[in-house]
Each structure stands twice: as C-alpha cells, then as structure tokens.
C-alpha cells in the first residue's frame, strides 16, 4: 500500500536525517565509487522513460541517464540498481540517501530546486502538460472542457498547472487524484473522469495502456513548461558534475556526429572537438574524478542523445514522439550543452 510505503520511506528518511552525521563534500561520489554501482530512482512504470521490458530489464531515457553515469564512472553501463518510486515518494527517497540520483520524469521548478535540499543536473526531456480526452466527447480544444472531471496523479506539478489553467480561463473542474498513473488510466477508461491530464509524453505512453488506444486523443494545447531532468542531493558537487556532464556528453556527441556505431572510428578522427570529447587529447577525465575515456564509454554503451531519444521515445519505440523541442539547438530544438573543452 502506498500510504504504508510513504510512511516507511518517510520514517526511513527521518531516521536517516536523525542519525546521519555532517555532510561531507564528495560523500555521494565516494560512496557510489566504493559500492560499485549507481542506485537509481525511477518511476513505477512509464514507457519510454522508465519501465521494464518483457524480460524484466529497465528501459527508457531516464534509465539511460543512470546508465550513462555508470558508464562514465565504472566504464560499465550495467552497474546500476533501480528503485521504483511513485511521485509522492521520490524526493524523500533522494533526500534520505536511499538513492543516489533521481531521473524520474521530474519537473525542474523553483521550489523543488531551492527548498528541498536538491539540485537539478540538467534537462533530458523538454515536456509540457496536455490533456487526453475520449473521442466520444467530440471535444477539439481544452477550452471546451469547463465543468469536466479530471483524472490526475497525486504529487505532481500537474495538479498545480491544471488548477492554474482552469482558473486563468475561468473554467470549473473537478480533480480526482490517484496515487499512481495506472489508476488514472483505469478511472479514465471507466468514465469516472472526462479527461486525463499529465505531461504530453506521458499521455502518449498512457494512451498505449488503454484497451483501445484509438478511442482517446491528445488535445493540441500545451499548458505548461515541464523541463524534466535528473536530480541529485545538494552538497556533493563532484557527483553533481558527473551527472550533469554525463548528459552534456551525450548531447555534445550527437552534435559532433559521434554514434554508438562509429565511436571507435571516431577515436582516430582529426577533428579536435571530437578528440576532446572522446578523451584522446586535451581535457582530462580526472577533472570529473573518472577515467579519460568517460565520454567514449557513455557513447559506446548508451549512445548519443539522439540515439537514446529515438530508441526510447522516438521512431524506434511504440510512442513515436517527434524530436520537437528536444532536437538540438542547431536543428530547430532547444537541446544545448556547453562545450567539452
């Protein structure tokens, strides 16, 4: 039961806070290095972001964020253990040290960044909140939804955006708040609510879970900015740097045209930018406290950002989400990483 889980987690968090000594810089980095794997907090099952496949392996871009860090640190992307968390549990789990990083389709907001003792290391998916309705309703725009009942997952920024949107447009709504996204789908399917609201990427993922995905449609309105990214605890800049630059390495690799397939050939490239990214010359991995080949390992084992995107949520997946805002800055999107030099 979720309440029990929350209680246990909170109790664990409180106990952790009670007993833990003072925080040392580098504590997480050293602890992860010592135990030999990254403890990764993921969702309880959101296709494309973090979900298990039919063989029980975790897949998704959030999962790949952890795998990239493991590749950079240990040279082995498989050195990751996963902790599935629902939206309400996630921050407590990270604060208490139960997990090392939290890439769990989590929106970067002011309050979360400043008051939870946490830091967002980057944005691995630019999202926005949308609505899914049953085609039977014959609704074409969210503006026609006044008075509707809305199914929603508890403990998300979605709850606040929904309230803001309806208030701003002077519309009424009734929010029915469930613990997990699976329950929102069940309730939506049973007609308990007229629409389901969540981040657009999630709506496509949840639509696949419907008995008849074609019976529902996602409305065109995007009502919020939802930059999703990996979160770490404050107070360990080494660890923060590693998580942040693991993502930047993937984006830089895509920009430089380095892929999983050609990465070995690229080692011989004469392009100084590529040589720097792959650790052949110039910058050293020791700045991050890892091997010089850290970025090579990420690209070799996890792929560049574009490959990761297409494999998990793009054309190579059931979701078929287009790159949109998540295209590179020089290809019409806003994904941008500082240079590796």
């Amino acid at each position: 039961m979720n309440f029990k889980r929350i209680s246990v987690l909170t109790a664990a968090a409180t106990a952790g806070l009670m007993i833990a000594g003072t925080v040392q810089a580098g504590a997480t980095f050293d602890a992860v290095k010592k135990k030999g794997y990254v403890q990764c907090g993921v969702s309880t099952g959101l296709p494309g972001f973090s979900a298990t496949d039919d063989k029980g392996n975790w897949k998704g871009i959030d999962v790949d964020a952890c795998r990239a860090v493991a590749a950079a640190m240990f040279g082995d992307a498989s050195k990751v253990k996963y902790t599935p968390l629902n939206a309400k549990e996630r921050f407590t789990a990270l604060q208490s040290g139960e997990i090392d990083m939290l890439p769990r389709n989590t929106t970067w907001t002011f309050t979360r960044d400043t008051s939870l003792g946490l830091n967002f290391a980057g944005v691995n998916y630019y999202d926005g909140q949308g609505f899914m309705v049953s085609k039977k309703l014959g609704v074409k725009s969210a503006k026609e939804l006044s008075g509707a009942s809305v199914c929603i997952q508890a403990g998300t920024t979605t709850e606040l955006n929904l309230a803001d949107y309806f208030r701003a447009n002077k519309m009424e709504y009734k929010a029915i708040t469930y613990d997990s996204s699976d329950e929102t789908v069940k309730a939506f399917e049973a007609g308990r609510c007229d629409m389901l609201t969540s981040d657009q990427s999630q709506l496509y993922a949840l639509r696949i879970k419907l008995t008849d995905p074609n019976s529902a449609m996602v409305l065109p309105e995007v009502i919020s900015k939802e930059p999703l990214g990996p979160v770490v605890r404050q107070g360990d800049d080494e660890w923060f740097n590693l998580v942040r630059w693991s993502l930047f390495a993937q984006i830089n690799a895509e920009e430089a045209g380095i892929t999983m397939k050609n990465v070995d050939e690229m080692l011989k490239s004469a392009d100084p930018n590529i040589r720097r990214i792959l650790g052949v010359e110039g910058v050293k991995g020791e700045f991050l406290g890892v091997d010089d080949k850290w970025a090579y390992n990420i690209v070799k084992q996890v792929g560049n950002y574009g490959e990761m995107f297409e494999r998990n949520v793009g054309e190579g997946s059931a979701l078929k989400i287009s790159r949109g805002q998540n295209a590179l800055w020089n290809k019409g999107g806003i994904q941008y990483a500082p240079p590796i030099r």
Binding site: I6, T10, A13, T14, F91, A154, T156, E159, T177
Partner: peptide, 12 residues
C-alpha cells in the same frame, strides 16, 4: 500527507 507534502517537500 500526499499532495501538500509533495508540493512543499516538508515531510517531517
């Protein structure tokens, strides 16, 4: 203990 906790983060 659900929504408010998550929005404010003040679990304790």
């Amino acid at each position: 203990a659900g929504t408010t906790l998550n929005q404010t983060g003040q679990a304790v």
